[in-house]
Design a protein around this nucleic acid. Sequence first.
DNA 1: AAGGCGTAATATGTCGACAATCTTGGTGTT
DNA 2: AACACCAAGATTGTCGACATATTACGCCTT
Lengths: 227, 227
Amino acid sequence: MSTHPHLLRRAITASDRVLYEIQSAIVEGSIPAGSKISEPELARRFDVSRAPLREALARLERCHLIERTPNAGARVVTLSPEGLIALYQLREELEGLACRLAAEQMPEHEVQELAALLDQHLSSQRVREGESYYQEAGDLDFHYRVILGSKNPYLINMLCDELYYLVRMYRVQMGMNGPRVSRAFDEHKAILTAIANRDGELADLLMRRHISASRRNIEQQLQAEKD
Amino acid sequence: MSTHPHLLRRAITASDRVLYEIQSAIVEGSIPAGSKISEPELARRFDVSRAPLREALARLERCHLIERTPNAGARVVTLSPEGLIALYQLREELEGLACRLAAEQMPEHEVQELAALLDQHLSSQRVREGESYYQEAGDLDFHYRVILGSKNPYLINMLCDELYYLVRMYRVQMGMNGPRVSRAFDEHKAILTAIANRDGELADLLMRRHISASRRNIEQQLQAEKD
DNA sequence: AAGGCGTAATATGTCGACAATCTTGGTGTT
DNA sequence: AACACCAAGATTGTCGACATATTACGCCTT
């Protein structure tokens, strides 16, 4: 599977493969947040030379999963409440825009596919009540499609390539769960309705609220962790 | 000079230098838009090995100045009206947010420095009436400071590192000039006032309008070019 | 014992060469 | 003449090794 689901990449290079593996490892915490990255070690571990590894590191920096300083090496990013807030401030704005554009630009058949996706979520959600991961994946899927619907390549690149891995990292490592999943589903449905009605302004507003609610949810989680 | 004015980079590596040179060459058109990038040629031309060159290319892709396809090489981006609109849609949203955050977050002394910068622009503008480049540099400087004032690292990274070189490329290659400079100055002043009054909502609105006006200006330029 | 200094060890940046892939030009077929 | 196919050339991806910068450790000084 490609790391850029919206792009058809012709070739899968070694650097792509190692990027995908390290990316997953960081997001899921098997390479711990804040830890130092050693190029020789990772090169041995994933059985590649340092050349494709460094290419992968450059892309990891691009999506904010690691931070590099010249001649000094790279560290996995450390998660923090401030970072989360800064990230979600951006998401709110960007996805609001994406949602508005999607309401204006999305071709009819994509709107119908989005509706079908939500129906599918509904049934699978009923089956797996409380199992959070699936809903999370579904949530991301919904957001992905809306973003792609905006037809703005820069916006798509920023959200899907540069920000979403970090969003997933916060979600996974903070352990998203609980009663928010069903409410999130309702919010998705309302957003879809606005898009289907070509009401960009409302779609924008609803998406902002949806993300804002999601942020508050994680903040609570993060607060609860302190106690 | 560093390519990331807001970051103090400890070391200037060869890849940094060649990045800066190619970046300038692309923005100013001495490497033409749409042309193919040849790694061996550029390596000879800038007297480096392909390793730091490829690192530089990766960063050029990051700021949307080139487009790479695996095993097929890289091309300089081609400018288009659609691309311009997509870019400015994003700028409007992101800089609006930056401006609102700056109104809330900017420390008092930075606000005063920003005011001093505008005074400086006023005098230099009177002297060099009609000379557009300086005003453009000044315009970028103003926007840079507002963005930095937002204190949101992701936002700063996106605007200053990933979007602004492309914005400059459009401006330079479309040949910005004319009567808009003085109006832009007034708009800057109004934005500053809103920031100084800590009126984030107004600052946001004014910045959006400012950028929207700038976009229309370039679009006109682009339209005029057709005739 | 604490702190600065110099050296060794390690990591990163860069290089030149090889392997795999794509592109180009030519050839042959229909 | 147009198209498909094949081979040669060139380009990109990858590798291992060297140069340079940083880090870690032990030693000396106070």
